[in-house]
């Protein structure tokens, strides 16, 4: 009894002594969930992944916070991305499951300004998307391929259909455009490009889709194809809609009197003539019906170079990297 009282007195004295000094006992677990999420939002990928391995509650918290990627690329044997706080590059590690988990995490919890699926990852991407993706992936700009058409569609379907731009490579698959135009992703995008279109006579279908959907002014489609005959077929398809026609440009009416569609066979300068010999560039665009011919954008070389840089710049690897 006496010792108990002694202990109590000691304790009280100690408390009194230290009462002027604040005692800091607050820790991560005392933080409200919204503050934790704010902190998680400031973490880089590695720390997020580490935190979600500490406990179930932390895992679900981390997973509820989307991560913003400025650009993310899945390439053959690598994943690279840049975000506001970091630049990340990982070469494929031997542990296949861990690699797939990383891919899945990024795809499940990422919000992308730009996402690229490059040559060599087709199989992995298909396996990755077998996983449970309950939500559609948000991305402003999507670049896919060159892949098999089924894979392209499989990937597209995992994304929200509000991307601003979509870049595809059809690998000269003949049914490619028909299949792709069915998807709202392509219908809604303000810019689309398809490389190596198998049947260039199909490009009239793009114009028809825009007419049917009354697409916005500025909506643009760029195509490369090694075929040359479709441009001549446009007037046949739209005989009653022709506004003007030259060797390189055809302007057609839409059902909306405020909008026209301009179809251009990109003309070449001497510098790029070699490229043009093996490839045709087409550009389709919804324009204002008031647009004058003098307002047409003739700076086609820059946009062709941007679309297929590997054909213009020696040493450019189509995976987007310059080789030494």
């Amino acid at each position: 009894m006496a010792s108990n009282i002694k202990n109590l007195v000691e304790k009280t004295e100690k408390t009194a002594e230290s009462s002027n000094d604040p005692i800091y006992e607050t820790n991560w677990c005392d933080m409200p969930a919204d503050i934790k999420l704010e902190c998680i939002g400031k973490m880089e990928l590695k720390e997020r992944l580490s935190l979600r391995c500490t406990a179930k509650t932390e895992k679900s918290l981390v997973d509820s916070k989307k991560m913003h990627f400025i650009e993310c690329t899945f390439g053959k044997n690598y994943i690279g991305f840049s975000s506001k706080n970091e630049y990340f590059f990982a070469e494929k590690f031997e542990d296949q499951e861990a690699w797939l988990n990383l891919m899945q995490y990024i795809l499940k919890f990422g919000v992308f300004d730009k996402i690229n699926f490059r040559r060599g990852v087709e199989e992995l991407v298909n396996i990755c998307f077998l996983g449970n993706f309950s939500q559609l992936i948000p991305a402003k700009n999507i670049e896919i391929g060159p892949f098999n058409m089924t894979t392209v569609i499989n990937i597209l379907q995992k994304f929200k259909d509000d991307a601003e731009s979509i870049s595809l490579d059809s690998l000269i698959q003949t049914e490619f455009l028909d299949a792709i135009l069915q998807y709202s992703h392509v219908q809604n995008a303000s810019y689309c490009q398809i490389k190596s279109l198998g049947r260039s006579e199909d490009i009239q279908k793009i114009a028809q889709m825009w007419i049917d959907n009354d697409s916005k002014i500025g909506t643009t489609f760029q195509i490369t194809s090694d075929k040359n005959y479709s441009f001549e077929l446009i007037p046949t398809h739209f005989a009653d809609r022709i506004v003007s026609q030259t060797e390189k440009r055809i302007r057609i009416r839409t059902n909306n009197p405020a909008k026209h569609i301009l179809v251009e066979l990109e003309h070449q300068s001497e510098e790029v003539v070699v490229v043009i010999l093996v490839c045709r560039f087409y550009r389709l665009m919804v324009i204002s019906a008031d647009m004058k011919e003098s307002e047409y954008d003739d700076n086609n070389e820059e946009r062709m170079r941007k679309m297929v840089p590997e054909w213009f710049d020696w040493g450019y690897d189509s995976d987007g990297e310059y080789e030494d």
């Binding site: 991560w28 580490s50 935190l51 500490t54 406990a55």
Partner: peptide
């Protein structure tokens, strides 16, 4: 927690295990 492993984070922030 920059650069820390799950174990280190658990220790620094006193996160109880499952």
């Amino acid at each position: 927690v920059k650069g820390k492993s799950p174990e280190e984070i658990r220790e620094i922030w006193m996160i109880p295990t499952d």
